[in-house]
């Protein structure tokens, strides 16, 4: 599980505050994406200044049922010295969100059968440590194949 408090401490006060709604959302099982209140466009990663209009006020929109399509990915075999070493091979993908016009990096623990354009959905580990049905045993938010609606 990602310890969002520890992460925010590592980042320092400024970036910690800037990214807090995102990690707070993940901890509650939600994917939240910043929207510039001046121009109305979403952006990711979160930044202090809107890359579209230089606005600096953001509201956070929650994806109802986080789904997306694979833009590209890599299959990581060499993760020596990281906490992901035991998980390798795994995939890291760039995922185009269905609901908002942004791409996110995402962990895909099962790297078999991936294709550009394939549908994926976000799975959260349950708060009590139970593994949700149909997901792998990874204790952090990750993406799995989804049947297109």
């Amino acid at each position: 599980m990602i310890d969002s408090q520890e992460l925010e401490q590592t980042l320092g006060a400024g970036f910690g505050a800037l990214f807090h709604p995102y990690f707070d959302g993940l901890a509650r099982g939600q994917l939240a994406i910043p929207r510039c209140t001046a121009c109305g466009r979403h952006q990711f990663p979160p930044r202090s200044v809107c890359v579209h209009c230089r606005g600096h006020d953001f509201a956070w929109d929650v994806a109802d049922d986080p789904r997306g399509t694979l833009f590209t990915w890599t299959v990581v075999h060499h993760a020596k010295g990281t906490e992901f070493e035991a998980l390798a091979p795994y995939a890291v993908a760039l995922i185009s969100l269905a609901q908002f016009d942004v791409r996110l990096y995402g962990l895909i623990p099962e790297p078999e059968g991936l294709e550009v354009g394939a549908s994926v959905r976000l799975v959260f580990p349950s708060p009590d440590g139970e593994v949700p049905a149909g997901s792998s045993t990874v204790g952090r938010p990750h993406w799995v194949h989804a049947n297109p609606d």
């Binding site: 990602i2 992460l7 590592t10 980042l11 970036f15 990214f19 995102y22 990690f23 990663p45 833009f71 590209t72 990915w73 890599t74 990581v76 060499h78 993760a79 990281t82 992901f84 998980l87 795994y90 890291v92 993908a93 760039l94 996110l104 990096y105 995402g106 962990l107 550009v116 952090r140 990750h142």
Partner: peptide, 23 residues
Amino acid sequence: RTAFEHPVGLFSPAQHYSMICRR
């Protein structure tokens, strides 16, 4: 890197750039 890459297992240039290559 700390906030959005390391938590999903993304650490190195080989990983970043291989995604450009795949696309």
